[in-house]
Simulated scan of single mutants.
Amino acid sequence: MKEVFAGIFVFIVGIVLLWFGIFYVNKKNYKEPDDGMNYLLKLTPLPKIINYWLAKFLILLAGFLLVFSCIYGVIQNI
């Protein structure tokens, strides 16, 4: 039963990361950043546009990996 709750939690975190990567990390927030977006734009000493795409890529990659790993786990246990 613990595996079910862990799988649901991982799936929800994956969906939240996908939402965050698609709707929050966007060009509007890049041009007019708030405190959280300023932190992402100072992720590395590279220019801000590279940090923007790097953060967007890593967040979306993590979200896709979590969602697909949950789907794969469910399919393997059927």
Rank of each mutant, 00 (worst) to 15 (best):
M1K: 09
M1Q: 10
V4E: 13
A6K: 12
A6Y: 12
G7W: 00
G7M: 02
I8R: 06
F9M: 14
F9G: 12
V10R: 14
V10Y: 10
F11E: 04
F11C: 05
F11G: 03
F11N: 01
F11D: 04
I12L: 05
I12D: 02
V13C: 13
G14T: 05
G14M: 05
I15E: 11
I15T: 11
I15Q: 11
V16R: 15
L17C: 08
L17R: 09
L17T: 08
L18F: 04
L18P: 05
L18H: 02
W19M: 10
G21F: 00
G21Y: 02
I22E: 03
I22Q: 07
I22H: 11
I22V: 09
F23W: 13
F23L: 13
Y24A: 06
N26H: 10
K27W: 13
K28R: 14
N29H: 15
D35L: 10
G36P: 00
M37W: 04
M37T: 01
M37N: 01
M37F: 03
N38L: 08
N38Q: 05
N38A: 07
N38K: 12
Y39Q: 11
Y39R: 12
Y39F: 13
L41C: 02
L41T: 00
K42L: 04
L43Y: 12
T44D: 00
T44R: 00
T44N: 01
P45R: 02
P45A: 03
P45Y: 01
L46M: 10
P47A: 06
K48Y: 08
I49F: 06
I49R: 10
I50Y: 07
N51P: 01
L54P: 07
A55P: 09
K56S: 03
K56Y: 04
L58A: 12
L58M: 13
L58Q: 06
I59F: 02
I59W: 03
L60C: 01
L61Y: 03
L61K: 06
L61I: 01
F64A: 09
L65Y: 04
L65H: 01
L65V: 06
L66M: 08
L66E: 04
L66P: 03
L66F: 09
F68K: 07
I71S: 11
Y72N: 15
G73W: 11
G73Q: 11
V74I: 14
V74F: 13
V74E: 10
I75L: 15
I75W: 09
Q76C: 12
Q76R: 15
N77H: 09
